[in-house]
Simulated assay, not measured.
Amino acid sequence: MKMTQILGAGAVALALAALPARAIDVGPADYTILPSGTALAMLYLQHLSADSLEVNGTAVPGSSFEANVGILRGLYYTAFGDLPAAYHLVIPFADIDRARIGGADQPASSGLGDTTLGLTVWPVQPKTPETGTSFGVSLFATLPTGNYNPERLGIGEGTWSLTPQIGVIQGLGGGFFFDGALDVAFQGDHREAGAEHSRSPSWQLQAMLRKQWGPATSLTVGYSGQRGGKQKVAGAETGLKTHRDQLRLYLTHFIDPTTQIQGLLARDFNVEGGYKYDSAVQLRLVKVF
C-alpha cells in the first residue's frame, strides 16, 4: 500500500484542529454569550510548517509538510427555547505547497474542505462576567463536501463526523479568565477502492489562561491536547492517529467596536502518528453585525 494511501485525507486534519474534520478549535472568549440577533463573520488565515513525520512510533526521514489554510466561519446568536444559543457555519479551504514523505514528494489536492454546521446552547450564564461562569454545550456535524481523493493528500475526509463539545469561561477576577473546552469526534467508516477506511473516536482538551486589559485587548496562553483517532485501512492499522500536544499564544484586539483582529502562534511539542508542526501561525479577522 502506498504511503499516500496510508496517510490519506487526514494529513492536514491531523495538523491543526481548527479544521473541522475531528476536533473543533476554541479560541479565547469563544464561549462568550452575545445578545440575540448578533451575527459574526470570521476569516482565519493559517500557515502550517512541519519538518518531521512519525509513523508507528518511528520518525520517517526526509519528511516535511507546508500548507496555507483559510477558514470562513459565520455565527448567529439567538435563543433555543429559554436558553441563549448560537448557530455555526464553518467552511475551510487549503493550498498544500509541499507534502514530502521519506524524501519523495507526494501528490496533493488543494481546494475546498469539509463543511461543518453547529449549534451551541448555554445552560449556565454568568451573573457577573468578571467572576462568574459561562457553560455551553455544542454539537457539530461535518459533511463530506470537500475535495477528497484517497490517492492524494488533502483536507477532505470523504465521510461525515459528529463532534459534541462542552465549553466554559470562568472569571477569576483582576481581568483574568480561564477558557476551556472538551470534545470528542466520531467519524463514519467509508469504503474507497474496495478497502474499508475507519478511524476510532478522537478527543481534544483545550485550556487557556487569558488576561483581559479592558474590553478591547487580551493576551492568552493556551494548551491543546488530542488523543485517539487511530486509522485503519482494510482492517490494518496505518500507524497514524490523533495524538498531539501543542502550546499556543494568542493576542486579541478590537480595532473598533465591531472589528476584531487576533494573532496566534502555536508549536507542537509532542506528536505520535503524524506530522509534527514546528510552526503554526494564524490571523483571525472578526466583524460584528
Rank of each mutant, 00 (worst) to 15 (best):
K276S: 11
A141W: 07
E151D: 15
A86H: 01
K241Y: 04
G136F: 13
A39W: 03
D268C: 03
G180M: 09
I24F: 10
L14M: 04
P84L: 04
E66Q: 10
T259F: 07
A141N: 05
S36L: 01
D189R: 10
R98Y: 04
P164L: 01
G37R: 08
A141R: 02
A94Q: 06
M1H: 11
F254W: 10
P201K: 05
L7A: 15
A99G: 12
A67I: 06
F177I: 03
A280T: 08
D95I: 08
H243A: 12
A86R: 12
N56C: 06
R267P: 04
T242Y: 11
G132D: 02
Q282G: 03
L285F: 14
S110G: 12
M42K: 08
V121R: 06
I101Y: 12
Y76M: 07
Q226D: 03
E237I: 09
L43S: 05
P150G: 10
Q204A: 06
A59F: 14
V90K: 02
F65H: 01
E272I: 10
Y31E: 00
A280Y: 06
E192Q: 13
A141G: 05
T4D: 15
L19C: 07
M208E: 02
Q262Y: 09
V55D: 13
T115V: 15
E192L: 01
Q206P: 01
Y250I: 02
G171E: 12
V288L: 15
G188A: 11
L7H: 09
S202T: 00
Q5G: 12
N68C: 08
F254D: 08
A85S: 11
T259N: 05
G146R: 01
G102D: 14
E192T: 12
P129N: 08
P126N: 13
I166A: 00
T133D: 09
K230M: 09
W122G: 04
D25I: 06
G167K: 02
Q46Y: 15
R98C: 06
F254H: 10
G156F: 09
Q204V: 08
R210T: 14
K241N: 03
R73H: 07
G188S: 10
L7I: 15
A141H: 04
L205Y: 04
Q106N: 08
L139P: 07
A185L: 00
N270L: 09
L285D: 04
D95Q: 12
E54S: 14
D97H: 01
V233W: 06
Q206Y: 03
A266R: 13
N68D: 13
G10H: 15
L240R: 06
T131G: 13
S138G: 09
L182V: 11
S161P: 00
T220Q: 08
G27L: 09
T32Y: 05
G180C: 02
E272V: 11
L205D: 01
P201T: 03
